[in-house]
């Protein structure tokens, strides 16, 4: 099996790995880097459980080849908190009961960080709901996820910790 080298910064840590060209970014993150917080839910980029940030933009990593991330900065849920300090979105999902089984939660948090709050620090409920349309949750009925994003917005939580620290 031929391999290619990719250079990726994952949560601020520079890496170089020899991988199969067809390796999906989600499997690179989970199986090569060992970060299992991003999940596979649907294989067709409908559910968003695999959402990560690619150079600050949300990306469904089950539909991105790892080689496409060559030279990019990737942020996963593991990079959202630093030294035990939770990101305001993480805090808000916890305080507002915005999760149940937790499987969609990392993707929801990253999508909310990148596609909602980073662009629109004070979104309306409707804007939040449409912003999260690409992320499915079967447990919560979205009610408390919306509340969590509202709370995080009120708490000024627009950027992931790694970026706030200027690391990534």
């Amino acid at each position: 099996m031929s391999t290619v080298n990719v250079r990726v910064s994952v949560n601020g840590e520079a890496r170089e790995d020899a991988i199969e060209p067809r390796l999906l970014l989600i499997h690179y993150l989970r199986d090569v880097v060992g970060l299992t917080g991003s999940h596979v839910g649907c294989d067709t980029s409908n559910c968003g459980a695999c959402t990560v940030l690619l150079d600050g933009e949300s990306a469904k990593s089950c539909t991105v080849l790892a080689v496409q991330a060559d030279g990019a900065e990737v942020t996963t849920i593991e990079g959202m908190s630093t030294d035990g300090d939770l990101h305001p979105l993480q805090e808000a999902f916890w305080s507002e009961h915005g999760l149940q089984c937790g499987y969609c939660t990392p993707g929801m948090i990253l999508m909310a960080a990148a596609d909602l709050l980073a662009r629109n620090p004070d979104p309306t409920e409707d804007e939040i709901r449409h912003g999260l349309e690409g992320n499915l949750c079967r447990c919560t009925g979205y009610h408390n996820i919306v509340k969590a994003v509202q709370k995080a917005a009120a708490d000024g939580g627009a950027r992931p910790a790694a970026e706030r620290e200027g690391v990534a």
Binding site: R30, L35, T36, G37, S38, H39, V40, T76, I77, E78, M80, S81, L86, Q90, F93, W94, H97, L99, C101, G102, Y103, T105, P106, I109
Partner: peptide
Amino acid sequence: RKEDPRFITGTGRYVD
């Protein structure tokens, strides 16, 4: 919830 810290930080442990 007591279980939430692991889920919001990506440290839950699902079978995969």
